[in-house]
């Protein structure tokens, strides 16, 4: 019996589709399966969303620099205007998630069976389980709301291609704005929020279809400004609603159904 090419087995360990011949052989060969499993351990350990390339920019609160300055003894300080500019620097690929969820309808009752869209096709990769612990990783944190540096956007991050005010949903006291900028083919969503401090939960921003049937998670947001890279290829005309939800620390990556603000992007 001709075993799979070792390089093919390594790719299989990374979750890539093996060649048809190798896939057929792999289905029946315990030896090749063992090789894949042994190579996969390091993939499972390291290829986790919490270690992925940065996908969102968030200004650290002032006490972080204060602690760095105290520990290193440096006498200089970062400049607030330059910290703002740092928020708008390019950030790499977002991590995809692919989950089923119930969706909060605009009118209040969650329609069943809606789906969270994957950021990009993963048909040739390992199933989405590799990325699902994202929310679980967040769960590990004790989420005590810390004051973030509120920054004002200065338009330095590229051309604004869409924007909206974010209005509170019924019985919510919150507001904000959202803006999509494009620079060098990369689109970023900046969310500026004025929201209550949370204890034991956190805010997350989503892009929803107009009927709120399908949605894409974009990232964690907080009081003040957050800049997130948008998934490549997402059609803002198909997902025009910007929605900010309160997510409990339950490890469930789906939308909680509790939204605080929402707005429809206009281009």
């Amino acid at each position: 019996m001709q075993h799979c090419d070792p390089d093919e087995l390594a790719l299989a360990a990374l979750g890539e589709q093996a060649s048809p011949e190798c896939a057929a052989h792999l289905a029946d060969c315990a030896e090749c399966q063992r090789e894949v499993a042994s190579l996969r351990r390091s993939v499972d350990v390291l290829a986790v969303p919490a270690l992925a390339a940065p996908s969102q920019a968030m200004a650290p609160p002032p006490q972080v620099w204060a602690a760095i300055a105290a520990a290193t003894g440096v006498a200089v300080s970062p400049r607030p205007a330059e910290m703002e500019a740092g928020l708008l620097r390019g950030i790499p690929m977002p991590t995809p998630t692919e989950v089923e969820t119930d969706v909060p309808g605009s009118a209040g009752s969650p329609p069943a069976g809606a789906t969270v869209m994957p950021f990009r096709s993963r048909s040739d990769r390992r199933p989405a389980t590799r990325w699902l612990p994202l929310a679980a990783a967040v769960l590990v944190g004790g989420l005590i709301g810390a004051g973030a540096v509120a920054v004002t956007q200065d338009g330095a991050g590229g051309a604004v291609v869409a924007q909206t005010g974010l209005d509170p949903l019924p019985e919510q006291v919150a507001s904000g704005t959202a803006e999509v900028r494009e620079r060098g083919g990369v689109r970023e969503l900046q969310v500026d929020l004025d929201v209550p401090t949370l204890d034991g939960s956190y805010y997350e921003v989503w892009l929803l279809q107009a009927d709120a049937q399908r949605m894409v998670p974009v990232g964690i947001v907080q009081q003040g400004a957050t800049v997130l890279r948008l998934p490549d290829g997402i059609d803002l005309a198909a997902f025009p609603l910007v929605d900010v939800s309160v997510e409990p620390l339950d490890g469930d990556p789906t939308h909680s159904g509790v939204s605080v603000v929402r707005g429809e992007l206009s281009t």
């Binding site: 940065p54 920019a57 970062p78 620097r89 950030i91 709301g145 810390a146």
Partner: peptide
């Protein structure tokens, strides 16, 4: 020393974004 402040101005938001993604906003991320 000035270079530490420059590096912080330019890249702290991305580093902090990763930390928040892992632990949520709060003391661990900070």
């Amino acid at each position: 020393e000035q270079a530490l402040a420059w590096a912080y101005e330019r890249w702290a938001a991305q580093v902090h974004g990763m930390a928040v993604r892992a632990f949520g906003p709060g003391p661990d991320a900070e």
